[in-house]
Amino acid sequence: MKIVAVCGAGVGTSGILKVNAERALARLEIEADVTASDIASLATTAADAQIILTSPELVDRIPPTWADIVVVQSYVDLAEIEQKLFDALG
């Protein structure tokens, strides 16, 4: 399973989302490869991804994709991230 965390610059915010998604997946006992990406590289980085994690502000910029898009409001709220990943994967 591949999950891509997206932000505008591909550093900083997407890194936080990546780390917290990995922690949430560990709690859910789900094996997945999580990478951080910027929007511009998404067509490549998310080509084989099942899930794209992003902010409400960036949803409209995500190019057409087969992946499920999961929108996270607070990047630091592990409970929110865990619940949304559980819903998307369940």
Partner: peptide
Amino acid sequence: EFGAYVVIAPGLAL
């Protein structure tokens, strides 16, 4: 360019 997504949590911008 990308909007206010840097506001990653209530009250906090990165």
